[in-house]
């Protein structure tokens, strides 16, 4: 196989990598926000439940979680999920839990007085959160979020434990034909992807540099 042929087939694997990445973010970001509200709830049983859940998800290897989501329904006699859906569910829940802790840290770092300033102006709690607090939180958590998001790019490679095609899996398939270099070539794709993300996060930080929290 020549360079362009390899590049082409790696690109098709990379497409699936990107799709996993995008779908996971799309689900995990709002889900993480909801989980963070749960972990800050004044209602103790809910808070305890959410914190236990976050402990379990953060405490078990992501690879194992993917296998659990895919295999366990079958073992229990329930219909098995499609492989790709199983991966997306495992990734989304796992990342949502990590995100939730970053969100919680960010939200709790905003001074109570910002809430009070909004309240005495007659704003509802929702208005204060979305109009006053949220952007300050986003500004504060951009750096730790960029870490997580970049980690996600590379964690998509775990999908191959349940035989979901992604770029590393594609390279491995080529390897069975006796060509090993495409495996290392995949690193370039990851690097470029992460490079673009780094630039985007840099832009976001710059965009929010007009105010200080």
């Amino acid at each position: 196989m020549g360079f362009w042929e390899v590049t082409n087939s790696l690109l098709s694997g990379f497409r699936s990598t990107c799709l996993m990445f995008a779908l996971t973010l799309l689900i995990a970001l709002p889900l993480g926000l909801i989980i963070s509200f749960g972990s800050m709830s004044k209602f103790a049983p809910l808070r305890l439940l959410v914190k236990t859940f976050v402990w379990i998800i953060r405490g078990v290897p992501l690879m194992l979680q993917i296998m659990i989501v895919f295999y366990v329904p079958g073992l229990m006699g329930v219909s098995v999920l499609p492989r790709f859906s199983a991966v997306i569910i495992a990734f989304s829940v796992n990342y949502a839990c990590y995100f939730s802790e970053i969100f919680r840290g960010g939200i709790e770092s905003i001074s109570r007085s910002q809430y009070e300033a909004g309240q005495v102006l007659g704003m509802t709690k929702t208005q204060v959160f979305f109009r006053v607090i949220l952007l300050q939180v986003i500004k504060r958590i951009t750096a730790p979020m960029s870490n997580e998001v970049i980690t996600l790019v590379k964690d998509t490679a775990l999908a191959r434990v349940i035989m979901v095609e992604e770029i590393l899996k594609t390279a491995e398939n080529i390897m069975t034909k006796g060509i090993i270099w495409p495996l290392f070539y995949t690193g370039v794709f990851y690097l470029l992807f992460v490079g673009v993300l780094t630039l985007l996060f840099g832009c976001a930080e710059k965009k929010m540099s007009y105010f200080r929290t």
Binding site: S111, S113, A117, G122, M123, V132, L135, F211, R212
Partner: peptide
């Protein structure tokens, strides 16, 4: 309480403007 608050305005010691 939210409507009742509107009878009062409050200026804080440390301003607490919305930074954004």
């Amino acid at each position: 309480l939210r409507e009742k608050r509107l009878h009062f305005g409050l200026v804080f010691q440390s301003f607490h403007l919305f930074p954004q």
